[in-house]
């Protein structure tokens, strides 16, 4: 009765079906890599000369020097203050912008304006923004805070707008059917749905601002970054190394705390 079962082979189909195209892509990628490496100006002599210098710098960084802790404390305090203020202000501004930039609840022109603000805020790396603000408002924490506000606005605004676009539309419909207007719909149908995302994003942004506040300090926008830059300029590598160690410690702690809070509210 039973007929012999025919043998059939199976292989995973390749990602690019056309074999000519597939091999052309391989060849092109390798050709580009070869060209890129060959044409970059690696000057081996200078690299070899630089090595002892690098060894000397790292050598003089040991042991890290914590004697000028007063300078370090005031730098870090300023950085943390900058991060907290910038997060509060940035998140507060990002909420209305995110509402504007949510396609599903905003009229078209408002949506485009909201998206425009977010794209603008995200176009430049914080360091470039910081350079511009330092030129505009002078050295110090204010330039740093403005930079981080813009940075927070771009990031939180974008992700919050996406969260708003993904809310369950049925809940909006139900609140709307009760005769509620736009603001009441926001408060009852939209905010409760995006609240966990909102809290998570704000905490993540605080974390991220803490990190970025050290970087923007390097270009003169206040905080520990300025202290770090000065230490390098005066060849105080041991002090610079001490600052870096504390920075890593603070970021680890903040990451731990923010991770725990975000898990708690999920």
């Amino acid at each position: 009765m039973s007929t012999p079962r025919p043998r059939r082979t199976w292989r995973k189909p390749p990602a690019i079906a056309n074999p000519v195209l597939r091999y052309s892509v391989f060849v092109l990628v390798f050709a580009y890599l070869y060209w890129a490496i060959a044409s970059l100006p690696f000057n081996w002599d200078r690299i070899v000369q630089g090595l002892p210098r690098a060894v000397r710098i790292f050598g003089s960084a040991f042991p890290p020097e914590f004697a000028r802790s007063q300078l370090m404390i005031s730098g870090f305090t300023e950085s943390i203050q900058m991060a907290i203020i910038a997060t509060l202000v940035g998140v507060a501004i990002s909420i209305p912008v995110a509402i504007m930039a949510a396609r599903t609840i905003s009229p078209r022109p408002v949506y485009l304006l909201g998206r425009g603000i977010i794209i603008l805020a995200r176009s430049f790396h914080p360091v470039i923004v910081a350079i511009i603000f330092v030129k505009a408002v002078g050295f110090g924490a204010l330039a740093g805070i403005l930079t981080l506000v813009l940075y927070s606005l771009g990031f939180v605004g974008k992700l919050l707008a996406e969260a708003i676009e993904e809310v369950d539309y049925g809940q909006i419909e139900a609140i709307r059917a009760s005769g509620a207007g736009f603001l009441k719909i926001l408060v009852y149908a939209v905010f409760p749905q995006i609240l966990p995302r909102q809290v998570g994003l704000s905490i993540y942004q605080l974390d991220s601002n803490l990190r970025a506040s050290a970087v923007v300090g390097v270009v003169g926008a206040g905080g520990i970054g300025g202290t770090l830059m000065n230490a390098f300029r005066r060849f105080d590598y041991d002090f610079a190394f001490a600052i870096l160690i504390v920075l890593i410690g603070i970021i680890l702690v903040s990451e731990g705390i923010s991770g725990r809070i975000r898990r708690g509210i999920a």
Partner: peptide, 29 residues
């Protein structure tokens, strides 16, 4: 719309709000 109540297939309650808040939301108009 206040004069027209509506019940939905998927209930469409606000999941993260309490029962009382959901009930009172019927007065939003």
């Amino acid at each position: 719309r206040r004069a027209i109540g509506m019940i939905f297939q998927g209930f469409n309650l606000i999941d993260r709000l309490s029962v009382m808040e959901n009930v009172l939301s019927g007065r939003l108009g």
